[in-house]
Simulated assay, not measured.
Amino acid sequence: MTRLNTELNIADPDAFYEKLIDTHNGLSEEESHFLNAKLVLLLANHIGDAEVLSEALTLARAGVSSEDAAD
C-alpha cells in the first residue's frame, strides 16, 4: 500500500508558493476556484493511486468545517 507523503518534498517551497499565488493574480474569485479545481484534478490524475488520493482527501477535509471539530 502506497502512503501519502506528507513530508516536505518541494525543493523550494517558497518559490512554489509564490508561483501558486502569482498564478491566481488577476482572476476573479470564481476563476480562482476553477483554477484550484483544475489543479487538484491534474495532480490527482498524476498521482493516480486511489488509496493515496483517499488519504489526501481525508487529511485535507480534517478540521475544515466547524462540524469536523465536533467529531
Results as ranks from 00 to 15, higher is better:
residue 1 M to T: 02
residue 1 M to Q: 03
residue 3 R to F: 07
residue 4 L to T: 04
residue 4 L to V: 09
residue 4 L to A: 14
residue 4 L to Q: 08
residue 4 L to I: 07
residue 5 N to M: 08
residue 6 T to I: 05
residue 7 E to G: 10
residue 8 L to K: 12
residue 8 L to P: 11
residue 10 I to S: 13
residue 10 I to G: 09
residue 11 A to V: 07
residue 12 D to T: 11
residue 12 D to F: 11
residue 14 D to G: 10
residue 15 A to S: 07
residue 15 A to P: 01
residue 15 A to M: 02
residue 18 E to L: 09
residue 18 E to M: 06
residue 18 E to H: 04
residue 19 K to Q: 12
residue 20 L to F: 06
residue 20 L to H: 04
residue 21 I to K: 05
residue 21 I to E: 10
residue 22 D to W: 00
residue 22 D to F: 01
residue 23 T to I: 04
residue 23 T to P: 03
residue 24 H to K: 15
residue 24 H to N: 10
residue 24 H to P: 01
residue 24 H to T: 13
residue 24 H to W: 05
residue 25 N to T: 11
residue 25 N to P: 03
residue 26 G to K: 06
residue 26 G to A: 06
residue 28 S to I: 05
residue 28 S to D: 10
residue 29 E to Q: 08
residue 29 E to V: 14
residue 29 E to T: 12
residue 30 E to G: 10
residue 30 E to I: 13
residue 30 E to N: 12
residue 30 E to H: 09
residue 31 E to S: 08
residue 31 E to Q: 15
residue 32 S to E: 12
residue 33 H to T: 05
residue 33 H to Q: 12
residue 33 H to M: 08
residue 34 F to W: 02
residue 34 F to M: 06
residue 36 N to Q: 10
residue 36 N to S: 11
residue 36 N to P: 04
residue 36 N to Y: 01
residue 37 A to Y: 00
residue 38 K to N: 03
residue 38 K to A: 00
residue 39 L to I: 08
residue 40 V to L: 00
residue 40 V to N: 00
residue 40 V to W: 03
residue 41 L to I: 01
residue 41 L to A: 04
residue 41 L to Q: 09
residue 42 L to A: 01
residue 43 L to K: 04
residue 44 A to S: 12
residue 44 A to E: 15
residue 45 N to D: 02
residue 45 N to M: 02
residue 45 N to L: 00
residue 45 N to S: 01
residue 45 N to K: 07
residue 46 H to M: 03
residue 46 H to Q: 09
residue 47 I to L: 05
residue 47 I to W: 07
residue 47 I to F: 06
residue 48 G to L: 07
residue 49 D to G: 07
residue 49 D to K: 10
residue 50 A to S: 15
residue 50 A to Q: 15
residue 50 A to T: 15
residue 50 A to K: 15
residue 51 E to L: 10
residue 51 E to F: 08
residue 52 V to R: 02
residue 52 V to A: 02
residue 53 L to K: 14
residue 53 L to F: 13
residue 53 L to E: 08
residue 53 L to W: 11
residue 54 S to T: 00
residue 54 S to V: 01
residue 54 S to P: 00
residue 54 S to M: 01
residue 54 S to H: 05
residue 55 E to R: 10
residue 55 E to F: 11
residue 55 E to G: 10
residue 56 A to P: 04
residue 56 A to Y: 09
residue 57 L to E: 13
residue 57 L to C: 12
residue 58 T to G: 04
residue 58 T to I: 03
residue 59 L to N: 12
residue 60 A to H: 14
residue 60 A to I: 13
residue 60 A to Y: 15
residue 61 R to M: 06
residue 61 R to P: 01
residue 61 R to H: 11
residue 61 R to W: 05
residue 62 A to V: 08
residue 62 A to F: 14
residue 63 G to P: 15
residue 63 G to Q: 13
residue 63 G to T: 14
residue 64 V to I: 02
residue 64 V to N: 00
residue 64 V to K: 01
residue 64 V to A: 02
residue 65 S to Q: 05
residue 65 S to R: 06
residue 66 S to N: 04
residue 67 E to N: 14
residue 67 E to L: 14
residue 67 E to S: 12
residue 68 D to L: 00
residue 68 D to A: 04
residue 68 D to E: 13
residue 69 A to L: 07
residue 69 A to M: 04
residue 69 A to P: 01
residue 70 A to Q: 08
residue 70 A to S: 09
residue 70 A to I: 09
residue 71 D to K: 12
